[in-house]
Design a protein around this nucleic acid. Structure first.
Lengths: 190, 190
DNA sequence: TTATAGAGTTGAACTTGTTCAACTATTTTC
DNA sequence: GAAAATAGTTGAACAAGTTCAACTCTATAA
């Protein structure tokens, strides 16, 4: 099994020995997920955390009005998690769906907890990753407040051009928080 | 000095020995901040992380158009941080201002790093807190996408009634991402 | 290969929220 | 306690984004 992508990703976040890297990787098992299949559906309890080796996922919720709301897209080197459901063992509010045939590395809850306890560096890894993610979420909320839909659309397709190519306009619209009809009008006027 | 609030806050997040609690607290020094004074201003580098003992703060950015954008309010038992500036030693995008005479516990960057290194439980503490915060930010973004300004206003004032009381409508509007004129109209119609 | 479902487009009417300006409280400061 | 600054209100005109409906254009499964 090829853990290089995961190892490199971890090394980009923290300093870590090869021995610890190998220990961490030994807990992950790879899994293939077919296009349109779900790793998690709303209402169930999340049992795994995943690292994307290849492919692309969409993480979204469906609100009371029936609208799909995309939290984020996860391509190569991104994590798949529902922190809330995983931490508290409560039913998830999220759906995680493969947008194309994909390959992930999964770790189950018990193993993750064991890893946290046996290797303090894993706490650091997820502390650092969570803090980086927090900053990104704060920036995204600010952008939602002070930029128009058009500006947000261009920011997204400039920042993630490779991901944007894999997505339908409907999916992009649900990420930006606008209707797909309006996105269509935005694209028309440039 | 009274570290009880900080100790209790930490115990609410993780399991920890009294000895470790005392070690952590020993790094924090208390400071009074007068109403309207800043703990951090945009452009400077953030040197401290703070825990609010008493009072209330507003954390906001000013964008190119000159609009104030409030990330969050921090009352008793909340943290004051600019993760980005603190982690990377880059100039901050944030302003942290006291809304009333306040009391905080501060830890400087070198001490925080020393704490992370000497006490693994501190990594866990901030990992857990960051993950909880992440969930909250995700939910807030979703609410921004699928709720109207009126719904968001009521959600805010119901969730944080004690904080809402200390705020001007202008400050609440900048948190909700709307103009204060529009908030005034929302309040009129109930 | 054709039926069919889903994705994208367009227009008209509508709703939500903004802008600007003038005005009225309410605090703050000296 | 008066003057000045700041906070909140209101209205009218406007801009941004939604809704619904009708249509076209792909993919794709039987």
């Amino acid at each position: 099994m090829n853990y290089n992508a995961l190892k490199q990703h971890i090394k980009n976040n923290i300093q870590i020995s090869n021995e610890d890297l190998n220990t961490i990787c030994s807990y992950f098992k790879s899994k293939s997920i077919k296009k349109k299949d779900f790793l998690l559906t709303q209402g169930s309890i999340y049992k795994y955390e995943g690292f994307v080796l290849d492919g692309c996922f969409r993480i979204f919720t469906i609100d009371k009005k029936g609208n799909e709301n995309t939290l984020y897209f996860a391509a190569k080197d991104w994590w798949l998690m529902d922190i809330d459901s995983f931490m508290n063992q409560t039913p998830s509010n999220l759906n995680i769906q493969a947008l194309e045939d994909s390959e992930v590395l999964l770790i189950n809850r018990a193993d993750k907890i064991a890893l946290y306890e046996s290797l303090p560096v894993v706490e650091k890894l997820f502390r650092v990753m969570s803090q980086k993610a927090l900053v990104a979420w704060q920036r995204r909320l600010i952008r939602n407040h002070c930029e128009t839909a058009k500006e947000r659309y261009h920011h997204f397709s400039n920042t993630y051009p490779n991901i944007a190519l894999k997505l339908t306009d409907k999916q992009i619209a649900s990420y930006l928080g606008i209707t797909h009809e309006f996105l269509s009008k935005i694209k028309k006027q440039g």
